[in-house]
C-alpha cells in the first residue's frame, strides 16, 4: 500500500469525495432551522406582512378585475398608503431571514465546542460548510415558496381569477431571484460567522453591511460619481458619462440588482432598467407588455450578478474556513 501511495505522489491529492456526508449535514441543519424559535418568529413576521399587503392590494384591485391581464403581479407590487407593496417588504425581509439563518452557523459550532468532534468524523470541511449553506438556502426557498403559494391562493380566492401561465412563470422566476438574493446575504453572514468568534459580532457586521447598501450606498454614489466624472462644460457626453458611472456603481449593491430584476419580472411593461435614450425607444409601443423571455433577457445580467455574488462570497468563506485553526 505504501509504495502505491508514493506513486500517486502529489501532496494535494486527497482520497474520496469532498462531499462525503454533505446530505447528512444538510438534513441535520435544515431540521435545526425548521424547528428553531428564531425561524418561527421570522415565519410569523413574513406571513403577517404578506397577509397585510396582499389584503390591501386585493381591496385596491377589485375595481380593475377583468381588465388587467397581469393581476397576480399586481398582488405583489400594489402599494396602498401607508403600506408599501409586498415586494418592498421582501427587500428587507429576505436579508433578515438569510442573516438570521447563517450568522452563527460556523462560530456556533466553535462556541458549542462541537466543531472538533464533528470534523473528527470521516467528512471534509467542504461538506460541513457547503451543507450548512445549502441547508440555509433550502430553508429560505421553502419559506419563500410557502409565501408564494399563499399569495397565489389568496389571489384566486380574493379576486376569483385564476392566474395565467405567464403570470405563474414570471412569479416563479421572481421566486428564484429572491432565493439567490437571499443567498448573497446568507453567504455574507456565513463569512462573518467564520471571521468572528462571537455570533453577536457576526450578526452586527452582517446587518451593518446590509444597512450600508440600503441607506448609504446611493448617497455615497451620488457623491462619488460627480468627482470621478465631473460635468464641466455641460455637454451631453459628460452628463451621460456621469449618469452611466452612477448606474454602474449603484449596481454593485445587491439591492439594486434585486429591485431591477423585480421590476422587470413583475411589471411586464417595463422595457428597460437602466438609462433610456430616446433612440433606443424607436419603434417601441410604450405600455405594451413584453413577453417573458424578453423581460428575462433584459435582466439577465442582474440575475447572473446575483448568482455570481453568492458564489463569490461562498468561495471566500470556503477559503477562510479551510485555513481556520480547529481547536475547541
Amino acid at each position: 500500500m505504501a509504495p502505491k501511495l508514493k506513486d500517486t505522489g502529489r501532496q494535494r491529492a486527497r482520497e474520496g469525495s469532498p462531499w462525503t456526508g454533505l446530505w447528512v449535514v444538510v438534513a441535520k441543519e435544515m431540521a435545526d432551522h425548521l424547528t428553531s424559535v428564531r425561524m418561527r418568529i421570522l415565519e410569523v413576521l413574513i406571513v403577517l406582512t404578506a397577509a397585510g399587503t396582499v389584503y390591501a392590494a386585493i381591496r385596491n384591485l377589485q375595481e380593475t378585475v377583468g381588465q388587467d391581464p397581469f393581476l397576480l403581479m399586481k398582488l405583489f407590487t400594489t402599494a396602498q398608503e401607508p403600506l408599501p407593496a409586498f415586494v418592498g417588504f421582501l427587500g428587507f425581509l429576505i436579508p433578515l431571514i438569510a442573516i438570521a439563518l447563517a450568522f452563527d452557523s460556523v462560530n456556533g459550532e466553535f462556541s458549542r465546542r462541537t466543531i472538533s468532534r464533528i470534523l473528527a468524523q470521516p467528512i471534509y470541511r467542504d461538506a460541513l460548510l457547503m451543507g450548512k449553506f445549502l441547508a440555509g438556502l433550502f430553508t429560505l426557498a421553502l419559506v419563500l415558496t410557502a409565501i408564494w403559494l399563499l399569495i397565489i391562493g389568496a389571489g384566486i380566492v380574493g379576486m376569483g381569477v385564476p392566474p395565467s401561465g405567464e403570470e405563474v412563470a414570471r412569479s416563479l422566476w421572481f421566486l428564484l431571484a429572491s432565493v439567490f438574493y437571499g443567498g448573497i446575504w446568507l453567504a455574507l453572514a456565513m463569512v462573518f460567522s467564520i471571521v468572528f468568534r462571537q455570533p453577536a459580532t457576526a450578526a452586527l457586521a452582517s446587518i451593518a453591511v446590509w444597512l450600508f447598501f440600503i441607506v448609504f450606498w446611493e448617497i455615497l454614489v451620488g457623491m462619488v460619481a460627480p468627482i470621478l466624472r465631473p460635468v464641466q462644460f455641460n455637454t451631453a457626453e459628460e452628463i451621460l458619462a456621469q449618469a452611466q458611472l452612477e448606474l454602474a456603481l449603484t449596481r454593485l449593491s445587491p439591492n439594486t440588482l434585486y429591485s431591477e430584476v423585480m421590476l422587470a419580472l413583475l411589471q411586464p411593461t417595463v422595457r428597460s432598467v437602466g438609462l433610456v435614450l430616446p433612440i433606443q425607444l424607436h419603434g417601441a409601443i410604450l405600455g405594451t407588455p413584453l413577453p417573458l423571455h424578453q423581460s428575462l433577457l433584459l435582466i439577465w445580467p442582474q440575475f447572473t450578478g446575483l448568482i455570481a455574488a453568492t458564489i463569490l462570497l461562498f468561495a471566500l468563506g470556503y477559503v477562510l474556513f479551510q485555513r481556520r485553526e480547529i481547536r475547541a
Partner: peptide, 8 residues
Amino acid sequence: ARQPLSVK
C-alpha cells in the same frame, strides 16, 4: 493528510 477519511 492524504487519507483523512480512512483515518477518521
